[in-house]
Nucleic acid binder design. Structure first.
Lengths: 229, 229
DNA sequence: CGACATATTGAGATGGCTCAATACCTGTGG
DNA sequence: CCACAGGTATTGAGCCATCTCAATATGTCG
């Protein structure tokens, strides 16, 4: 480790965005990066506000949601450690972002970040790939909503969380979000989500430790039902 | 008009991608651009193939679809004149693209196009904005699927087509796609689509001239039901 | 421990699906 | 020009998954 390396927060490496970067790039990024800690329930981004900052989740979980004038809500996605949010291409946000737990974040001024990304090919390629992931994820979600039954959609979410929930490769799932959040993500009602979980439990695919903790018993069957490919 | 201007196909101006560009940029683009004409039913892109080319629709309509191993299909979107397709960030396509009518296209080698875009700030900004549009569109679609009833989803599609169908600002809609395509786009069955259209006709929101031609009678109500904002 | 929010369970209503019959549209050959 | 065939769309009837509304249970925080 060189002296300069010490200045770079280790958490930079949590995101794919920063994978494989050299000292120079990381140095530039460190200069514009601010640490931020947000409480559960805190809004990082408000729908219709101007896009100023980009965040990278270091730890915790955030939820991206969208409200209509009619008062209906669609949850767009959940973001975990390493995911970035607010990296939009338009100048105004079309969604809100709220923390579901105490969350540590890196905050970058959007303009400055875009400039730096522009200057380093590897960073640019990383950014492109991550943008591609967001779109691929949206298509998966679309598929689940259009083609799958309630209990399959729940499998889709469980599978996703299990894959992306950082650190844990075990079969334990920490269901941080509320039933209403899940329902609004999957286009269902809370009652249907509850019943779907009960059904999966009855099928011995999962075990419900308590309302916010699930154990996967049959990963093969879960993936089968979750699959959008 | 200068002499060089004559070499540039007028159709370049149909897409937002090329809006506001100078002679130099257009010249570079013309060099790598190929014209292509595709028949109805022809596949431009196959799911899981390598991303080689980017297309811009000059005239006609294409459909972006995604198949699962289980044989289910989700239609991702329909693309009209001026839309580009295949401009993916990953190296492999996660969807297929098929023409719904005789279609004129511009074809660009993806790598070369990316390089040129990189060199011209305005072009880069255009590309970013168009990428943002794709995502915004996906979120709208997600919202419609998660929160709306059958007849509202149909309104969502009709409204979209009416806005994007090139040239026509009238209330006539040319429904090129089949009922199955519509159903797979909206997460419904063909029967439900049929009934939804009949219902809207009964409400005097639309008039069904024939299976593939719709007249909008009450645009306000249509937008109201279609709205995802 | 009690109060309030959140989740589960139950019962009935309903929107959308399935299966089946009919209608319409388009192209082909007599 | 008409008759017919094949594909596509509409309509009908019954069923089932999901929604709605209501009651109960569980969890959380003062």
């Amino acid at each position: 480790m060189t002296a300069t390396a010490l200045k770079i927060p280790e958490t930079f490496f949590h995101s794919k965005m920063f994978r494989g970067l050299g000292q120079e790039e990381l140095g530039r990024l460190t200069q514009i990066c601010q640490r931020r800690r947000a409480a559960s329930g805190e809004y990082l981004i408000h729908q219709n506000s101007t896009a100023q900052n980009v965040y990278v989740v270091v730890s915790g979980i955030v939820m991206i949601e969208r409200l209509s004038r009619a008062g209906r809500r669609q949850v767009i996605s959940f973001a975990f450690s390493g995911d970035y949010i607010g990296f939009t291409n338009t100048d105004e946000f079309e969604y809100s972002v709220v923390c579901l737990s105490t969350t540590e974040l890196q905050m970058f001024p959007r303009r400055a970040l875009l400039e730096i990304i522009d200057q380093y090919p590897l960073l640019k390629s990383n950014a492109r790939l991550m943008g591609g992931n967001v779109l691929a994820q949206a298509m998966d979600h679309l598929f689940a909503m259009g083609q799958k039954k309630a209990h399959e959609r729940v499998c889709f979410l469980l599978d996703q969380i299990q894959r992306r929930q950082c650190g844990i490769s075990k079969s334990e799932i920490d269901l941080v979000m509320s039933r209403q959040d899940i329902a609004d993500y999957l286009g269902l009602t809370i009652e249907t989500v509850s019943r779907a979980l009960a059904k999966l439990s009855g099928m011995s695919v999962i075990e419900i430790t308590n309302a916010h903790r699930i154990r996967i018993l049959d990963r093969v069957q879960l993936e089968e039902m979750a699959s959008v490919h």
